[in-house]
């Protein structure tokens, strides 16, 4: 059977199904909201597989998803070692230190109006800069192991988190602050009972942006020197030695890790800010 014909047929069928589902009366139910994007993703994979097989693309150029899956299953040990090195040690440590430090700094500078007005524009500017470029400097300062990767992540996540937390802490309205004042609330009472809860949507926005940056930072830093493990290291050497299927397996793991990391933070956000209009149904 022609792979191309099958792929195109699958595409058409999936699209028709999706169109029918999306215009059906159940369109806002949960199953449909899950099935439609899932089917879309599967379609992309089927198209990829079909096109690669039909045109007999060499696996060293673009391996089909089935081959990537095989590699993924057969080299779980390597992938797990790389995952530990890059995600758990490099990205996660840096993420916790960086966002934690930014959070504490934000609370400290928030006490001074002068500091806030001085740091906020600078923070906004720095958050837009290509900070990844600092990776080679930090690798030369902190050595090749995961500490330098964590340092890159700390620097990358610090400013977006700082800016978001500071903006969040300013979200309360004068009326609400006056109310706390009439209750004779102390600084810490009004911080914990009013301003931090009000800042939570902003804080989580920063935390979510930081998840993506953390993985980017940890992987880029490995291109500038790393021990013989880690996702960035494996991708770099894999491209050189033409083991492209392993590279795609690493990419799949990186994508999954990034999505789960983001999804995890988003899940916590829904638990914490259930009161916010954007989460009410």
């Amino acid at each position: 059977m022609s792979w191309l014909a099958f792929a195109l047929f699958f595409w058409a069928a999936a699209w028709a199904t999706n169109a029918a589902l999306a215009n059906s009366p159940w369109r806002s139910t949960r199953p449909v909201r899950v099935i439609v994007p899932l089917l879309f993703g599967v379609t992309l994979l089927v198209l990829w597989e079909g096109l690669v097989r039909h045109f007999q693309v060499m696996p060293v150029i673009l391996p089909p998803p089935s081959l990537v899956w095989d590699t993924l299953i057969n080299s779980t040990e390597t992938l797990w070692v790389d995952f530990q090195q890059t995600v758990l040690k490099g990205a996660l440590t840096g993420y916790l230190i960086g966002t934690g430090a930014a959070f504490l700094t934000a609370i400290l500078i928030d006490r001074s109006d002068f500091l806030t007005r001085g740091l906020l524009p600078i923070g906004n500017f720095v958050a837009a800069l290509p900070i990844v470029g600092i990776a080679p400097i930090l690798v030369s300062w902190f050595g090749f192991d995961w500490q330098s990767k964590a340092a890159v992540v700390v620097v990358m996540v610090f400013f977006p988190m700082l800016v978001n937390t500071v903006s969040g802490l300013r979200q309360t309205e004068p009326m609400q602050r006056d109310l706390m004042h009439t209750y004779a609330a102390s600084y810490s009472q009004s911080l914990f009972k009013l301003r931090l809860p009000a800042a939570m949507p902003f804080i989580f926005n920063g935390l979510k942006i930081a998840t993506t940056l953390a993985l980017i930072g940890a992987i880029v830093a490995e291109y500038f020197g790393s021990p013989t493990r880690g996702m960035g290291f494996r991708i770099n050497t894999g491209v050189g030695s033409l083991s492209i299927d392993l590279v795609w397996a690493e990419i799949a793991v990186a994508a999954l890790a990034g999505t789960l990391f983001y999804g995890g933070v988003a899940w916590i956000e829904r638990r914490v800010t259930f009161w916010h209009p954007s989460h009410r149904n």
Binding site: N18, L21, A22, R27, V32, R33, V36, P37, L39, F40, G41, T211, T212, L215, I216, I219, V220, Y223, M231, G232, I235, E250, I251, A254, A255, G258, T259, F261, Y262, G263
Partner: peptide, 18 residues
């Protein structure tokens, strides 16, 4: 809207450097 939007969000959680 239903099929693309979730993937647009997921695409940003994938570290592009990889």
């Amino acid at each position: 809207n239903l099929s693309l939007m979730p993937w647009a969000i997921i695409s940003q959680t994938i570290p592009i450097v990889a």
